[in-house]
Amino acid sequence: MNERSEPTTGTAEPLAGGDRVDCGMDSATEAFVAHRNLLFTVAYEMLGSAADAEDVLQETWLRWMKVDLGQVRDRRAYLVRITTRQSLDRLRAMRRRKEAYFGSWLPEPLLTAPDVAQDIELAESVSMALMLVLETLSPTERAVFVLREVFDVGYDEIAAAVGKNPAAVRQIAHRARRHVDARRPREVVSPSETQAALESFRRAVDTRDLQGLLDVLAPEVVLIADGGGLRQAAPRPITGADKVARFIVGGLGKAEVAPTGEFTVVNGNPALLVRVDGEIDGVMAIGVQDARITGLYYIRNPEKLTRVESETPLTLR
């Protein structure tokens, strides 16, 4: 498709950041604004980082303003294509950054509106548990899986976005789906079931009840903590209910100030916002199966806690 040499817009920047001065939007700007939340969701699910997703949206905006709209049949699809390509480039660069990351890496948590939790498909797609499974895919596999399984994009359009032919995309989609299905939770858990497990967990932590923790933790539970080298955190995942429970209770025993957890909704699922002396210390998200916690995901890296007090809109449409 052809590109314009000069953008024909009278808008103010930065549109990708979500805030702008309305100086009369032209057709290209209206299309971008209309699909901005979708584009952010696509980028975030591919990257696991809100900051990087915002950068991708800025690049998408700059490229979109050079496109000859007369050659574009489906503006939504074209915007998703640009976003996917930019996300793929950034995802490959992020992989090198993650190799040098201190300790375990977890996705950046997002405070989400209650309606996201009610959208089962969306809530599952941005859950910490599934986002971590997506980390095990190659960049192209992740892009294909996200576009096909989450956003129901057609194979031809995915092929154009990732630079493959449709037949190859179908094979990649099948391989990625099989890989994810082997590692994702066996069943979708309701928000109420997750909330109940989280309440039992908080009650046991507040009372430093070791047996109470063992009762709510699945035998194979895994604790992953992300301090990013900026805050203390377990450098490697801890596996097993007894080890995880003793680690949590032992850590509380060493703390000068007991942490307090308040219920919130992160990535479409119930979570705990943990404060120490009134300051945010981290976010605790969980994975649940059969009413017991199978995954504990504690994000303490302060650089990843900038979106846990104001809602980030997400959408699949």
Rank of each mutant, 00 (worst) to 15 (best):
H35W: 08
N2M: 06
R90C: 01
T294Y: 03
R236P: 00
L230I: 01
P270R: 07
N267W: 04
M1P: 06
D206S: 13
F263A: 14
Q289I: 01
I280L: 09
R95M: 08
G227K: 13
T11P: 00
A167D: 09
E99I: 06
S310A: 11
V188R: 15
Y44C: 07
P109M: 12
M65C: 07
G253H: 06
P14A: 10
A16N: 04
P237I: 04
D26S: 12
D68V: 12
T29W: 00
L130A: 02
D68N: 14
I82A: 06
E54D: 10
S200F: 01
E135H: 11
A182K: 13
A51M: 02
V21N: 06
V42S: 03
L69F: 03
Q86W: 01
A77N: 10
H35E: 05
D52T: 14
L62F: 12
G24T: 12
Q289R: 11
A291S: 13
R175P: 00
A271F: 04
K66G: 08
Y298D: 02
N269Q: 15
V33E: 09
Y298N: 11
V126F: 02
D22A: 12
V146D: 09
A161Q: 05
F40H: 11
S138P: 02
T194A: 14
A53P: 00
V265N: 13
F145M: 01
D26A: 07
L316E: 03
E54I: 12
G18V: 10
F151G: 06
F201M: 15
L110I: 09
I172M: 03
S138Y: 00
A271V: 08
G48Q: 08
G154A: 12
V150N: 09
L130F: 14
D206A: 13
R186E: 15
L137G: 07
F102L: 08
R202C: 05
Q171G: 06
S200M: 10
Y78K: 14
D152Y: 03
V33A: 14
P259D: 04
S125P: 07
R90S: 06
N301G: 05
E124H: 11
P14C: 15
A218I: 02
G251V: 09
I280E: 00
G17N: 10
